[in-house]
Each structure stands twice: as structure tokens, then as C-alpha cells.
Simulated scan of single mutants.
Amino acid sequence: MKIKSLINLFFPEVCVACKDYLSDNETFLCTNCRHQLPTTNFHVNNDNFVKNVFYGRAKLEAATALLRFEKKGMVQHLLHQLKYGNNEDISRFFGDWLGEELKLSNQYNDIDLVIPVPLHSKKLKKRGYNQVTQFGQKIAKALNTSFSEDLLIKITNTETSQASKSRLERWQLDNETFSVTQLDTLNNKHILLVDDIITTGNTLEACILELNKAHNIKISIAAMAIA
């Protein structure tokens, strides 16, 4: 009997989405749930939907999101577990998945550095982790490039969760400020900025505007989901 089969006999693993038992060849999500996830394939079919969110707001080399966010859907359930359920495995899972796809795309083969959208220090201390960190680390590993979460920091603290707000309310509430700690290190670099979900795009736009203070910088973005 395989070791995994023996372990599952006494400590069965369950699908993080539907809670059914996983088979020996399944990890984290069962095959049925994974096939139900609404993938975008933006980075495969060269769809510019994500870039269009930032049209006239920020220049991007490439942009993608792995999944479509649907209210009360599976993606919302997974992201809620990631952010509030202390389940960082979700971040790693999505990072491995998207990383394997991005390394097949010519648009992402010259990335010099992967940077996650940062949390404010107070929110980071309260949660204990940045939900995007391991997502970015896995993508950086797949692209055989560097990762840093110290170069971009968040100065303002958005205490109120915006998950239940309407799109207009999120536009009105967004007032986030970021800062680059070592601007010269970003000169002449192609940066991949990663986040969990794109809603209004305001957070990413604020990050991009700050990163653009570096000389001759190129920026692409990748997110777990887009609303």
C-alpha cells in the first residue's frame, strides 16, 4: 500500500471546496471541482479584457487573471478561505497553476521580478500573512525569476472590508497609498505585480503609479481572479 493511501486511510483528505474525500491522485481540489472553476484563459488567447480595465489609467505589458469571480460561487468561497480562513494552501495552489501556464507564454518570459500587492503592517500583523505572497512565490519559481515583498509597501490602512461593497462604493472608498523602498533597484526591470482579485483596479493602479517612478520600468499584472 502506498504511503499516501495509508495516511488517507486514517486521516482522509477532503476537497477544500465540496468537502468530498480526495482520491489518491487528487490534491487539494477534487477533479470535479477543479473542472467547474471558471477559468479565463486570457494569457492563452491574448484577450485584453484585464488590460482594458486599466486602459487610460496605467500602461501594462501584459495582464491576466486565472479565474472569474462570481458572487456566491466557488471562487468567492476559496478566496474567503484564503483571506479569512487561514488557508494559505489556496495561494500556493493558484500560484502553481498559473505559474505553469505563464511560463508557456512569451509575454511573461522576460519577467525580472515578481512583487505582491502589499498589506498594511497592521493588517499583516492581524492576519499573520499576506494572502498573495505564496501565490507570487510560486509564479516566480515557475518563471525562474526573483520574488520580493519588501520593495513595495502600503502606507495607508484600509480597515473596512470591501468584499460586500458595490463597485461604486469601492470606487468611493479606495484611497490607498503605496511606496517603493529601493526605487533604483527597479530601474530597467520588467515587474510582474500580483494580487488576489481585481475589482475596480484602483489598488493595482495605485501600485503601478508608484512603481512607474523607476526609470525605464515595464509592468505586467497577474491575479487569482477578476470580478
Rank of each mutant, 00 (worst) to 15 (best):
C18E: 03
K19Y: 11
D20F: 06
Y21H: 06
E26S: 12
T27Q: 10
F28K: 10
C30D: 12
T31M: 13
N32T: 15
R34A: 05
H35M: 07
H35G: 08
H35F: 11
Q36Y: 05
Q36D: 10
L37K: 00
T39V: 15
F42K: 09
V44W: 05
N46C: 05
F49M: 06
F49Q: 13
K51F: 03
N52W: 04
Y55I: 15
G56T: 11
R57H: 09
R57D: 08
A58H: 04
E61I: 05
A62P: 00
T64Y: 03
A65H: 01
F69N: 04
F69G: 01
F69W: 15
E70S: 11
K71G: 04
G73N: 04
G73D: 07
M74Q: 15
M74V: 12
M74I: 15
V75C: 08
Q76M: 11
L78N: 01
L78S: 01
H80F: 00
H80M: 06
Q81M: 05
G85C: 09
G85A: 06
S91V: 07
R92V: 11
R92K: 14
F93S: 10
D96V: 13
D96F: 11
W97I: 07
W97F: 15
G99Y: 01
L102P: 05
K103S: 04
S105D: 14
S105T: 12
I111G: 00
I111V: 12
D112W: 00
L113V: 10
P118L: 06
S121V: 05
K122A: 11
K123H: 07
L124W: 09
K126P: 01
N130R: 09
T133F: 04
Q134G: 01
F135Q: 06
G136K: 04
G136L: 03
G136D: 05
I139D: 08
I139Y: 02
A140S: 11
K141Q: 15
L143I: 08
N144D: 14
T145H: 08
T145L: 10
S146A: 15
S146L: 14
F147E: 00
S148T: 08
E149F: 06
D150C: 08
L152Q: 10
I153C: 02
I153S: 03
K154S: 02
K154C: 11
T158W: 05
T160A: 13
T160Y: 06
